[in-house]
Design a protein around this nucleic acid. Structure first.
Lengths: 350, 350
DNA sequence: TGTTAGCACTCATTCAGGTAGAGTGCTAAT
DNA sequence: ATTAGCACTCTACCTGAATGAGTGCTAACA
């Protein structure tokens, strides 16, 4: 527990300690190597001897802001140290805004493509790994249903859900279906199901509709099954890019750690909490340092996420994963910049 | 050029050399370490001294079947050696057929999911990296078109292409569209475009149709644009899984090589030739050793591919990527097994 | 009282030297 | 044709010494 040489607890961090901590962190971010007292004494404008710095560093270590990997090594920032850095020093913003290429706008056609493109561009720009989540409509409501006959015995069911998500399914019919009956059935389905979400398409409703359908009871059953399947279908909602960038940072390149991280990216497993908003309605930019992310594989990484908005109430997230010594300033700037561009795109699209 | 101690060229490989080569390869496959003459002399039933083996190995090296990494190391198989091994020894098939879980069939709903599942299961079963290509219909023909109004000013265009691929696009209309006109327009589009492929939906046709459409000329133009876009749209056709498995093999784990390989898998770039059938109509199982694959990143790997059939004339490929010392027997068996299961699935689906 | 110089100490890294062991090629004997 | 034996080569591994970056502590200083 932090106590100075007189045995008095040090609770508050003063100006000088803060400067030293800042110096340690930025030096470590640049080199990835533990930084010693002499380096700080020489390369800052504090005009203090290495001995003094040592005393201060000793205090900072007691306070938990820095860590000594082994007895005679320099210090590296702890999660708590990074946290302080991010919280305080990041406030005075870096003004050199990173101009991201306008490539985005050109390629923008469908949401999926935009998001994949974003992931890729961010990864290329930052040299970190990126993840982008597509917003999920939690209570997906049926907006529109269209049955059509592709051939005598093959029916296509098109379902449009909230957010203009289109799902389609084929139904193979055992006997030819009378084309004339289609409009009526379309009408029936649309009036019955419009505005309902998955939980409301339940057994009772299906039963009732089957009765109404009379001779078409069987086929209505099949159609409803497919509609339910289509609505409940979860498709990919997480895109990643630049996972191999982590191999650029020696502290993440050790075999075991790299394998875990890369596997996490490949299988997109275990990052759900981080990347969807179900549990976490906070917007804006979030920084998770080390174990704060609650992702086992990323306990030696930092993660920066940003929330983007497609329309009112519909949000997705972008995440950047890198070493703890990542360039937070640049990452935050780049993300803010990206958000702006995404806003523009989505504004133009509607 | 291969010459024995009498200066006579050795052209043909005899029984004994073959046995020795086989022993070298299987030993190397098990250990991943260069294998020396003493090992072979001790652990085979040839009853030859290490010296004799050395002579034979020297010949085998002259003939290009094995390589000495450095002067006083054992030998490892060359690409040519593996090739011989695969061509000859693989013939007598290993009978212990790997029973792959029937998980596949349960999860089988849509083609994409089946293929992703296959990639994943194969990767888990073999501990190698896998890739699966979805068949691409080369000359995609329009099978069916359906326009519908989702709201006053929003039209949904559904296009069904060869192979029951469904594409959909929204069109935002500047002014409300008369619902009554839809059937007529649907009829016009279907009769005009049915059976045409992308190359046939050209300027001339578009011009002609616009004329026919009269007052709807503008909207027909938009619709045709979207149809053309939908038909030409290339979606993902390559799924990979288990890329991180390569880190299990020391000879592929060196940083540079691993990065290249993993990047290739992540970006799915450069493996097109290997994984689609455009240039290569051969079916069945193919083995590419080292540079044979013509994929730069895989020059120290072997690749085994198998062709599967969805319906007559529609083929896709499955590929397994591992170290050159991969267990070819097991891989080939597993692939054959998988093919059978896929056949079953696709038979039931139609 | 805060700051600093000096010193003894620790520990990771590097490098040279040395050894063990696996393997080879060649030669002479069987 | 096969083998035993030997000299040789090269890698892997260990050791010990030197280096240097870094620390903590103490005593002196302003």
């Amino acid at each position: 527990m932090s106590a100075n040489n007189k045995g008095v607890m040090i609770v508050e961090i003063d100006e000088r300690k803060l400067k030293i901590l800042q110096a340690i962190i930025s030096n470590y971010m640049a080199t990835g190597e533990p930084v010693g007292s002499r380096t700080i004494s020489k390369y800052t404008d504090l005009n203090l001897s290495s001995a003094t710095i040592r005393n201060e560093m000793s205090d900072l270590e007691d306070m938990g802001y820095i860590i000594q990997p082994h007895t005679s090594a320099g210090r590296i920032p702890s999660d708590k140290g990074y946290r302080l850095y991010v919280d305080t020093m990041l406030q005075k913003k870096d003004r050199e805004v990173d101009e991201m290429k306008e490539l985005l706008v050109n390629k923008a056609d469908r949401l999926e493509n935009v998001l994949k493109q974003v992931a890729k561009l961010l990864a290329e720009n930052t040299n970190y790994a990126t993840m982008v989540s597509k917003p999920r409509y939690v209570h997906k409501k049926v907006k529109f249903i269209q049955l059509t006959l592709v051939s005598d015995t093959q029916m296509l069911v098109v379902v449009v859900i909230d957010g203009n998500i289109v799902k389609n399914r084929f139904i193979n019919l055992s006997e030819p279906f009378d084309k004339e009956e289609l409009p009526q059935m379309n009408f029936l389905l649309n009036t019955a199901l419009n505005g309902l979400d998955l939980t409301e398409i339940n057994m009772a409703l299906i039963h009732k509709m089957k009765e109404q359908a009379g001779q078409y009871s069987e086929i209505i059953g099949m159609i409803l099954d497919e509609i339910a399947a289509a609505v409940s279908e979860e498709d990919d909602y997480l895109y990643t890019s630049g996972a191999t960038n982590i191999l650029k940072y020696p502290e993440l390149s050790d075999k075991e750690m790299a394998t875990k991280l890369l596997t996490t990216f490949e299988e997109k497993a275990g990052i759900g909490n981080l990347m969807n908003l179900d549990n976490n309605e906070e917007h804006g930019i979030q920084v998770y340092i080390g174990e704060e992310s609650n992702v086992e594989a990323m306990k030696d990484c930092s993660v920066v996420t940003a929330t983007y908005k497609i329309e009112e109430g519909v949000y997705g997230k972008i995440g950047i994963v890198g070493p703890k010594r990542m360039d937070y300033q640049k990452v935050v700037n780049t993300l803010e910049n990206t958000m702006k561009q995404l806003d523009d795109i989505f504004k133009n699209k509607n």
